[in-house]
Design a protein around this nucleic acid. Structure first.
Lengths: 121, 121
DNA sequence: CTCATTACGTACATTTTTGTATGTATCACA
DNA sequence: TGTGATACATACAAAAATGTACGTAATGAG
């Protein structure tokens, strides 16, 4: 906003102003099941049915939908094996990996927040 | 899940299993306008109309709704001054502050992700 | 021949989120 | 007396997300 010469807080402000990337990131992980999927894949690839079992409450439809979105967002990779019965494996992509530590921080924050607010609210 | 003695990767798994906190955190920041509000408040308190001006596309209704939710989630504080015309200021709470750096990381990730995928997708 | 398994697809219903439009109280100022 | 500013509220509508129920192809096991 301010035109040209400014120092110290300017880097911060830059980031604040490029908020689209932030909103964008939240959209990418914002689905009801996406971060659960992400962290479940953090230990290595899993097939569809394994994911289904790990995330008990998700329906097949939702699991499929979220995986497809994550795939087209480039954070998971889908591999089909030509077998019968079918076998499909999902794994995190390198850029998806970079989300994992952030998710863990969110988890920590969530824990902290719960502990904090259970006393005050 | 596994009952008792396990070492190395166990801490990781613990975190992964406490995924509720993660989901919870995503819900807290998941509203369409919440992180924008958050980072706009990161430099100090703002009044309603100032927020409105900074986040141009938000409607008054949405701004109010999101602020109310953030208030009841304990990440922003609302202060009413008994003046006419009315004056209401919003500021981040200490625990809300702790979300800011995480949001910035998300922003960075978003930037990176865009740069990466614009070539490959 | 029948049944189970796997990884989905599809139609439809419900819920949640977001948006649009309009109204309101108070007071200062012209 | 009329107008503008502020920080909302409220009714209604549209859109997006999520859920429910059921179907499907291929094949090996019994």
């Amino acid at each position: 906003m301010s035109k040209i010469k400014e120092k110290s807080t300017n880097n911060q402000n830059r980031k604040f102003l490029s908020n689209c990337d932030m909103t964008y990131a939240v959209e990418v992980i914002g689905g009801r099941w996406k971060i659960l999927i992400l962290v479940n894949l953090a230990n290595g690839p899993l097939r569809y049915s394994e994911l289904k079992r790990k995330i008990e409450k998700v329906t097949e439809r939702m699991l499929t939908l979220q995986l497809r979105e994550m795939e087209s967002d480039g954070i998971v990779k889908r591999t089909v094996f030509a077998e019968v019965p079918p076998r499909v494996e999902y794994e995190i992509t390198p850029i998806g990996e970079k989300l994992v530590p952030i998710c863990l921080q969110l988890s920590d924050w969530g824990t902290l927040h719960r502990e904090t607010t259970k006393n005050s609210l």
